[in-house]
Amino acid sequence: MQLSYWIVAALLAALYLYAGGKKIVQSRERLRPMMGWVDDFPMPLVRVIGVLEVLGSAGLILPPLTAIAPWLAVAAAIGLVLVQVGGIAVHLRRGEARLIGFNVVLLVAAAAAAWLGTAWL
């Protein structure tokens, strides 16, 4: 179970670190080709989402790695599930149901990380 958690957590952490980092530092114009939804939200909110993704990324890895409050990894995984629920809602509201596949995969992976984390943390 531990190995499974680390594989899922590492993949999620890398993805969310990248995606969240882009949202934090790039302009709306640079984000638009990959994330058309940024036009629907104020940039401070896009930046907050990026910060939450980066914190979630760190939360998946650092607490179990350092054995300091390892339950935070489960909380981070649940938080990332909620990020994806929001992402799915935004895509559906924008009439982009065809784009939710990746969100669903990330939601399932984050839910798996939360479940795997409770199994051994």
Rank of each mutant, 00 (worst) to 15 (best):
W71Q: 15
A119T: 14
L72Q: 11
L45W: 13
G36Y: 05
R98T: 13
V51R: 02
K23L: 09
G79K: 07
A76M: 08
R93V: 12
Y16G: 01
R47E: 05
P63V: 06
T118G: 03
M1L: 11
V8A: 04
W115P: 00
K23W: 06
W37H: 09
A10L: 13
Y5L: 06
A114D: 03
G59Y: 05
G56P: 02
V51F: 08
L11S: 07
N103P: 01
G87K: 02
V74D: 01
V104R: 03
V104E: 02
P70N: 10
L80F: 09
R32M: 12
A76E: 07
G87S: 15
W115A: 15
K22W: 10
Y5N: 03
M35K: 08
A112N: 06
A97H: 14
P63F: 00
A112G: 08
I24K: 00
A67G: 06
L31S: 09
L80D: 03
L11F: 14
E29D: 14
A19L: 13
V104S: 05
E96K: 11
D40W: 02
F41Q: 08
G86S: 12
W37S: 08
A97E: 13
A13D: 00
I100Y: 06
V81E: 13
V74R: 01
V105S: 09
L107P: 02
A10I: 14
A110N: 14
L106N: 06
I68T: 13
T118E: 10
F41H: 12
A9W: 00
E29K: 04
Y16S: 02
L80W: 09
L121K: 00
F41C: 04
A97L: 11
A77K: 05
G21Y: 05
A113C: 09
A110R: 01
A110G: 08
F102M: 14
T118P: 01
M43H: 03
F41E: 08
H91D: 13
K22A: 13
G50E: 00
P64M: 07
V81A: 13
V74A: 04
A13V: 02
R94L: 12
Y16N: 06
W71T: 15
P33R: 00
I78K: 07
R98F: 14
A110L: 08
A9S: 10
L11R: 01
V90F: 00
L3G: 06
A119C: 07
R30K: 13
L11A: 14
A110Y: 06
V54L: 04
D40M: 05
G87A: 15
G87D: 08
P44I: 11
H91C: 13
P64C: 04
A67K: 10
R93H: 14
G56F: 08
P33T: 09
R94Q: 13
P63Q: 05
F102Y: 15
V81H: 10
L106I: 10
V25N: 05
G86I: 12
Q84N: 15
P44T: 12
A69C: 09
M1E: 12
G36H: 05
R93D: 15
V25H: 04
G87C: 09
V46Y: 01
M1S: 10
L107V: 11
I24F: 06
A73V: 06
V54E: 02
L72W: 12
A77H: 03
V108K: 04
G56W: 06
A14E: 02
V83A: 08
